[in-house]
Each structure stands twice: as structure tokens, then as C-alpha cells.
């Protein structure tokens, strides 16, 4: 079941002199199985938008529907927030700051216990969630969260969200503050979670080069509106709009455009380093040059590990 948002508008401090419109008549649908990237500069409305999706912000105008659960400004019928939040898991920025319990296993099982599961059931769910994020429950379960490295903490925090097996996973800047290797690991973890646990993924990001590699649809917010919403493969058509919105064009798109101006047309659909590299190699091949097959850039060799069971050693230090 998809997410359907219709005519959603929202103002902060409504009815006061500080009233500020954050969302202005936003309508969009996100279908099952999509990997959506959301971008927009600070204050564009993207965070306000995602906070509507699990009812953290009450709808003022318009409607939000998530897997059949409808949110409007009507007082009744009261939406089933418990069910909503088990369906749509939300990972906030720097989620490791939200760890609070004295052991990892207690922290991760907090959600299911609140949902009414017995302690043993909740802990079994927590152990599975920890395994899914690449941690060994036997090793870290009894530890205090603060004993872990930053990257481990972030994974524990993500485990605390996916423990309910949400069908939709929303992450707000999941790689912020991580080193390049930590970033690569978290992004591959998200791909893995998409495959094994949460088929629909929505990621807010500021990193154009990163989001173009993973998402297959890009929604850009500007001034509280959806400025544009395109399949990733059509992003290259929107370079000038991106710049108007204060966002950088992906370097691959910039270079493809520059080369086109110099008479080398790499064709359509270039959005990231992989599509750019593949297009250049294809051109060389057409010219009769001998080039080898290209399987995508995977600097740290993390992508191939995607399907392998994650032992604790796979994830190094993160934050």
C-alpha cells in the first residue's frame, strides 16, 4: 500500500505574528518498493514533510494516507498511531543521541515492549534486529550503548527502529558525520534492509553524489512545495532548476553537459559516477577501443558483501 499525500499545507506558530508556512499544498504518492531520495536546502520543508508521515506533526490542512491509515485534521476517527508507527519506521538525524537504556538489548526491545510484546518476545525481536544491522547480539546485547563506537551506536539506533519490521523506512540524513567508509557501510546497510525488511525506503540527504547512486526517484523541496519530482534517470534534464534551488548538480551531470558542449554526447540518463563511467567506456568501445567490462565503482568492496552474512568484523569503526 502506498503513501498518498494530498493538498498538505502546514504553518509553524499558526495564528501568531511568527507564523511561518513550511508546507504549501503538497501532493504526492510514494509506491511500495520505491527508494526515494528527498533533498532541499535547510528550511525547504522536507523535514516537516516527513514528520507528517508518522503523525509526529498533526495535519492542519490536506491529508496523509500511509498503508491505509488516514491522517487529517478531523478529531474523529482517531488514527491508529501505534499501527502507523509500526508500519513506518523513522530514523532521525544522529539517531545515536536517542539511545537511552542501560543495555543495548533493552534499548532495542523498548519499541516492541511498548507495543505489548512480552519481554522474551521483544528481546528475541531485538536480537534479530541487531543481526540485521550487522551486530552480534551475544557480543553487544549486554553492553551499555555508550561503550560502543559511534558507528555501532548508529546501527543500534537503526535496529531500535527496524525491530518492528516497518514496511516503510524513513531516514533523515543517515550518513551525516560519518567518515567515507562509515558512509559506504550505512548506505549498503540501507540497501540490505530494503531487501530484507523494509521494501520502501525514503532518505533525506544533502549529498547529491550519494543520493544519485542509491535512490531511484528524487523529490526536491523548495519553499514548502515539491519543486520537482523525477525518476533518477531524468535528473540530468533539471540541472538549471537544481541550481536555482541552491543545490549542486551531481558532478557526473556537470561533466556530461560540459563534454556535450565540446562535441562528445554521452547520451541520456547520466546521473552518477557509475552511469558516467559506463557511458564513456561505451563511447570508447564504439570507437573501436578495447575496454573491459565495468561493474560499477565499489571502492571499499562493500557492495559485494551486501548478501553475505554480516559478522561483527565487517563493520569497522563508524562515527
Amino acid at each position: 500500500m502506498p503513501i498518498v499525500v494530498q493538498g498538505l499545507s502546514f504553518s509553524y506558530s499558526k495564528g501568531t505574528p511568527f507564523e511561518k508556512k513550511a508546507l504549501d499544498n503538497v501532493s504526492l504518492t510514494i509506491n511500495d518498493g520505491e527508494f526515494v531520495g528527498i533533498m532541499g536546502h535547510t528550511g525547504s520543508g522536507k523535514s516537516t514533510f516527513i514528520q507528517h508521515l508518522n503523525g509526529l506533526i498533526k495535519v492542519q490542512e490536506g491529508s496523509v494516507e500511509v498503508n491505509g491509515i488516514r491522517l487529517t485534521n478531523a478529531k474523529r476517527p482517531k488514527p491508529d498511531y501505534k499501527k502507523l508507527r509500526a508500519t513506518l519506521g523513522m530514523v532521525f538525524q544522529y539517531p545515536e543521541y536517542q539511545l537511552f537504556d542501560d543495555t543495548v538489548i533493552k534499548d532495542v526491545s523498548f519499541g516492541p515492549k511498548n507495543m505489548g510484546y512480552k519481554k522474551e518476545e521483544a528481546e528475541a525481536m531485538a536480537r534479530e534486529a541487531l543481526r540485521l544491522v550487522g551486530l552480534d547480539p551475544d557480543e553487544v546485547g549486554a553492553k551499555a550503548p555508550f561503550e560502543l563506537s559511534g558507528g555501532q551506536k548508529r546501527r543500534v539506533a537503526i535496529a531500535g527502529v527496524i525491530v518492528m519490521k516497518p514496511k516503510i523506512l524513513v531516514l533523515d540524513e543517515p550518513t551525516a558525520g560519518l567518515d567515507p567508509y562509515g558512509k559506504e557501510q550505512i548506505l549498503n546497510l540501507i540497501l540490505r534492509l530494503k531487501k530484507e525488511c523494509s521494501p520502501t525506503v525514503i532518505v533525506i540527504s544533502h549529498d547529491m553524489d550519494e543520493i544519485t547512486r542509491y535512490a531511484n526517484r528524487l523529490i526536491i523541496f523548495g519553499d514548502g512545495k515539491v519543486a520537482f519530482d523525477v525518476p533518477m534517470t531524468e535528473l540530468f534534464k533539471h540541472g538549471s532548476e537544481l541550481e536555482e534551488l541552491g543545490l549542486e548538480t551531481p558532478s557526473a551531470v556537470r561533466m556530461a553537459n560540459a563534454l556535450k558542449a565540446r562535441g562528445v554526447d554521452l547520451g541520456e540518463g547520466i546521473v552518477n559516477m557509475d552511469t558516467f563511467t559506463a557511458a564513456v567506456l561505451e563511447k570508447l568501445r564504439q570507437k573501436g577501443e578495447k575496454v573491459e567490462d565495468f561493474n560499477g565503482i565499489d571502492w571499499f568492496g562493500e557492495k559485494n558483501k551486501e548478501n553475505a552474512p554480516l559478522s561483527d568484523g565487517v563493520f569497522g569503526e563508524g562515527v
Binding site: D209, S251, M255, A258, M273, T277, L281, E292
Partner: peptide, 29 residues
Amino acid sequence: YKISPPAVTLMADALADCGADIARDIATE
């Protein structure tokens, strides 16, 4: 050292890996 070069250098490197005649120390677009 768990460091990755900037995107342009990664692309140059990948092209060189596949046999294209491109230097690996490319630093700018």
C-alpha cells in the same frame, strides 16, 4: 586507511581499470 578519493579521481581510476588511457591522478572535473 579507509579513505576514498574524490568522485572525479574514482571515475578516472575506474576508467583506467577498464583499460582506458586515462591518468589515475586526475584531481578536477
